[in-house]
Amino acid sequence: MLEARLPQAKLLKSLLEAIKELVVECNFDCNDSGIAVQAMDSSHVALVALLLRADGFDPYRCDRNLPLGINLTSLNKILKCAGNEDILTIKASDDGDVLNLVFESKDSDRISEYELKLMDIDSEHLGIPDTQYDAVVSMSSGEFQRICRDLSQISDSIVIDVTKEGIKFSASGEVGNGSVTLKQSGSVDREDEATTIELQQAVSLTFSLKYFQYFTKATPLSSRVVLSMSNDVPILVEYKLDNLGYVRYYLAPKIGD
């Protein structure tokens, strides 16, 4: 059986926001080390990998591997019934076909209980190779969100060029073109806003902006985002969750004919 408790329902709500535009239904794979999700979008262009480590919950208990097949639209409906600050407990039995969700107000004078019907999901699990990337850029997640939003006015594609001087995002479309360059910064007052670049060799990649806009739904989960890139391979876009795990997205590049 599974029993896992989070001090704030807001976290699960935010996680759901971060994946529900990409994926309609997926398995939450629970075991004694935590809860993991790996799911691709329907076009097999983007993949989300989510990890919530057991020690990020208090308490956490799961005796054996338990795949919970969840329709995210349905889960979203139930999570709308939780207050952001509610204590959230999820429970599932080994042979059950429902997920129990309990929302408890902080002073414990209101307890609401919901059951979500589970489903059997035959998901395709991809093996993601351990990759040494040529360029790893850590930057403000809010800045990344703004750049994706701004350049989506220009085009539905974005070109990312990384050199040791900085990272340049550019778009070219019918109205004209635009670009935003962030220089590697060592002297900003706020660490959250700094851009740092680890570079083995310069990279230049083209991506569909639509998917980046889905990924940036994870912005409330972390003040930082890390973009890991090598030429002609999928980009890894990672949001780390404090003391809990991560949300990672992989996006296949657009490649020249």
């Binding site: 691709m40 993949l47 004919d257």
Partner: peptide, 14 residues
């Protein structure tokens, strides 16, 4: 011009 690739050409099936 560029063409959208898919993840299947980079990541193997488990």
């Amino acid at each position: 011009s560029t063409k959208q690739s898919t993840l299947g050409s980079f990541f193997g099936k488990n």
